[in-house]
Amino acid sequence: MLAYITKRLLWMIFVIWGVMTITFFIARVIPADPVAAILGPQAPPEAIEREKQRWGLDKPIYVQYIRYLSGILHGDLGVSLRTRRPVLEDIKEFFPATVELALAALLIGVFLGIGLGVVSAVKSGRTVDHLSRVFAIVGLSMPAFWLGLLLLLVFYYTLGILPGPGQLPYYLPRPPRVTGFLFLDSIIAHDWEALKSYLLHLIMPAFTLGWLSTASITRITRSSMLEVLREEYIKTARMKGLRESAVIMKHAFKNALLPIITVIGIRMASLLEGAVLTETVFAWPGLGRYATHSFLSIDFNAVVGTAMLMAFLYSFSNLAVDILYAYLNPKIRYT
């Protein structure tokens, strides 16, 4: 098992290096000139030249690449052209908001998805089943950014029962930054008003982001449960006179869990993608919004940095799922 994990970790480092190299070259071998874009069209050529020298952009591309690579090994991701701060600092600032949003979304997806999926499988062919299947396929077809706008339209603009975009209203000061996670920071500061407001602000973005996961988890739970429910040992358990709820939860659900975990893992990875859109709709100060702004202004250090981080999280959640999978299913262990 240890050898397997080591092998996978080494492979992951290689993949991240690959992602870094690809984005590095995509971001530098580009027709658009980021320095000119940031200085504006009126900037004299000498100023652009001077700025390029300052950022080391006048050097040949391989020199830039080697410099960047050695920077990474020292934990330096370069400086953002747009925010003029080290990219690592930016990431540290924006990442926690995304983590909180993604976790909330995942919770919604897992609970709602598994619940709906189990009910749907148990009541297979009945109205509940049809409804939940329709919900799942419509959910998979809904663009997240549009769903977010609809929710805002209904619950914020029209009914006014949920707060609008952002994390806190403008009149509430943010609790002091200790962990960077607003949820934890407001608990540490005993700022219950901020906590309550933040959780209310979190509902719509988390639901928007979790919707897609809910749909796919519902589907896989349903089909996996249906398959298990047909097995002989389920019949045996029923014949033993076990209560139906025990049969479903203890005998069926446990054995249906493997594919569900795989899908949850896949969803975790794609939450990042959804975060980009959701954060844009809800003005959520997270990594997704940071990535969008950096990409739009071709802020290449920030682009490479965020792409690397996302590739890392993506591969890492895949690895975590594989390990969990091996742990839960001894048949595939050590292979």
Binding site: V15, V29, L296
Partner: peptide
């Protein structure tokens, strides 16, 4: 296949954003 794996490590939308931003 290793090159394919690297491309699969990208969240799709992020890769598309990077390329679309670079190309205009």
């Amino acid at each position: 296949m290793r090159v394919t794996d690297i491309f699969m490590a990208f969240p799709r939308l992020i890769l598309a954003m990077a390329i679309a931003a670079a190309l205009g």
